[in-house]
């Protein structure tokens, strides 16, 4: 359940930015999470609700944008989509894949008042 630590890091970023912009409340947070990242979005939402209690971001809505996973397939010599680590190349079935995209965990923007 490392989502707790990730939620705490998230809150720290959100609160610092909100305070820096003289906000009194954060109403929404947009996150980008890669499909191959280390977090489970339901667990993160649950943990964030818990850590945000009593903060500027209490009750803020989390809008999670999932970014697709992508890998470089060595046999195919091209980029292919990858839904999970350990999956084979959807074109040739090889596991000789180098993940190139999909492990993002980013706070993109926040709505404040």
């Amino acid at each position: 359940m490392h989502e707790m630590a990730i939620a705490e890091s998230m809150l720290e970023i959100v609160e610092a930015t909100a305070r820096g912009n003289a906000a009194v409340r954060v109403s929404a947070i947009w996150l980008e999470l890669g499909a191959l990242s280390h977090v489970e979005s339901h667990a993160l939402t649950f943990c964030f609700d818990a850590v945000a209690r009593g903060s500027l971001a209490e009750g803020a809505r989390l809008e999670i944008v999932t970014l697709p996973g992508e890998a470089w397939c060595m046999p195919c010599g091209e980029r292919v989509g990858l839904q999970r680590r350990g999956d084979p190349c959807p074109r040739c079935g090889s596991h000789q894949l180098e993940v190139v995209r999909g492990d993002e965990m980013r706070v993109k923007e926040i709505a404040i008042a």
Binding site: I13, A18, V107, E109, I110, I112
Partner: peptide
């Protein structure tokens, strides 16, 4: 945000990796 007498809601771009501090 346009309602009279309320603080306007605005969106601030952050674009920061959640684990940047770690």
């Amino acid at each position: 945000a346009h309602a009279a007498g309320m603080s306007p809601t605005r969106v601030v771009t952050i674009e920061r990796d959640i684990l940047a501090k770690n």
